[in-house]
Design a protein around this nucleic acid. Sequence first.
DNA 1: GCAGAATATTCGGATAAACGCATATAAGGG
DNA 2: CCCTTATATGCGTTTATCCGAATATTCTGC
Lengths: 118, 118
Amino acid sequence: MNKDFLDEELALLHDRICPALNHPLRMKILYVLKEKAMNVGELTMEMGIPQSSVSRHLSVLRERGLVRAERQGTTIWYTLAELELATVIDILRGILGRQLEGHLDQAQTILGIMSEEA
Amino acid sequence: MNKDFLDEELALLHDRICPALNHPLRMKILYVLKEKAMNVGELTMEMGIPQSSVSRHLSVLRERGLVRAERQGTTIWYTLAELELATVIDILRGILGRQLEGHLDQAQTILGIMSEEA
DNA sequence: GCAGAATATTCGGATAAACGCATATAAGGG
DNA sequence: CCCTTATATGCGTTTATCCGAATATTCTGC
């Protein structure tokens, strides 16, 4: 594989895909949309942050084609356009989980978080 | 699943795992280490950036347990500690690839981005 | 214990995100 | 038309991240 191609693909990845994973609230939006379509009001409830923030995070995802927006009258329904993003988050959670099991010193701090999964 | 637990897990994910994916050079390091262990000098060659930058990116990954550092005399060999990170990058590349094929309207915008390099 | 090689860290400055508030746009119903 | 509901955006500020150059640390062989 050509070295410059890889560099460019990674740059593109960094611009267009990675921002989705690069903020806890955006990850949460993706994760929540995995279950069902939601409108901005519902998401705002779910997330517990100002509506303008939700809207801005949605725009980050929407501009990159990672969620889909469909207008129905005055409300707009959002769906997860790239289902694999949820898979990615699951993999990352798995890595985190294994790390927390492994290093017992750190695990102790964080045990509360893990126990909900069992 | 408790809502606060998810929030906290995502915060942890954002602090401890996501930074690995949040920089093209770090993604490249992970991707290159997937193939074989390398020392800092080799990585510096491979990446074409100053050694101090490579070292700082490595520290980001090392502090989070995502790469493993093993000293052998004066040189330090790095290996990929979480193989699934390479899987994640592959998935993200897949998403990107499909986006570039699929949406022709957006593709047009992006083609410019791609061609300026060609 | 000194010289040299390999790697890590400190530092100041530049760039980019994120935030919240206020406001703008868009659609529907009277 | 005007009012209300739903969603998006402009703006100024704060906060975080990156960078390269220089310097510090760690190890080896002599």
